[in-house]
């Protein structure tokens, strides 16, 4: 991993500059030029090291979400996983080493829609879905450091009360 790549990945998982020309600013902070930074990001996206440049939302702030688990016979796993992937509400879906072997995260506009998705998956697949919604979050997600260095911590942002029903349309840069 080049030094530029490492610094780009470590330093800009949060506090991405909110300015009209963010890549110009990144480049000047990294001692590079914006075309090099854009090319590097494009390459990292293409190679899958970066999934996107965009926001991570506070859990439960927008809509209803849950972590769901299913116990699916091995020979049916790919089929059921594909069925689960077909829902736009599902954003992570992993096989895990356990009797409960399929784990996915689902997010919907509200609780009713979320429950509808889960029961739909249940009835279409024929396997039970166990829902484990978040009760409390202890960790503040600050991104992920690639090197052996210390995890940097910031003081937690005190939550303000935001009407959670008010969802805003967001475009994610892919």
């Amino acid at each position: 991993m080049s030094s530029l790549e490492q610094r780009l990945l470590n330093n800009y998982q949060r506090n991405f500059p909110l300015v009209p020309e963010p890549y110009e600013q990144l480049a000047s902070e990294l001692g590079s030029d914006s075309q090099t930074v854009r090319d590097l990001l494009a390459e990292l996206l293409m190679r899958g090291k970066v999934s996107r440049v965009g926001p991570v939302f506070k859990p439960r702030m927008l809509g209803s979400s849950t972590l769901a688990a299913m116990s699916v016979p091995q020979e049916m796993l790919t089929e059921v996983a594909t069925l689960v992937n077909g829902y736009p509400e599902v954003n992570h879906n992993y096989e895990r080493e356990h009797r409960l072997n399929l784990w996915f995260v689902a997010v919907a506009a509200d609780q009713e829609k979320l429950e509808q998705v889960l029961s739909d998956i249940e009835s279409r697949s024929g396997y039970e879905v166990m829902s484990l919604p978040l009760l409390k979050e202890y960790h503040i997600d600050l991104g992920f450091r690639m090197d052996a260095g210390d995890k940097q911590r910031l003081p937690a942002v005190r939550n303000r009360i935001i009407p959670t029903a008010a969802l805003i349309r967001l475009c994610t840069v892919h």
């Binding site: 999934s51 736009p88 954003n91 096989e95 080493e97 356990h98 996915f104 967001l170």
Partner: peptide
């Protein structure tokens, strides 16, 4: 619980 296969990983799509 180690992860084995990753079937899907993307950002949440918030339906508005």
């Amino acid at each position: 619980l180690f992860s084995l296969q990753r079937f899907k990983q993307c950002g949440a799509k918030y339906i508005v």
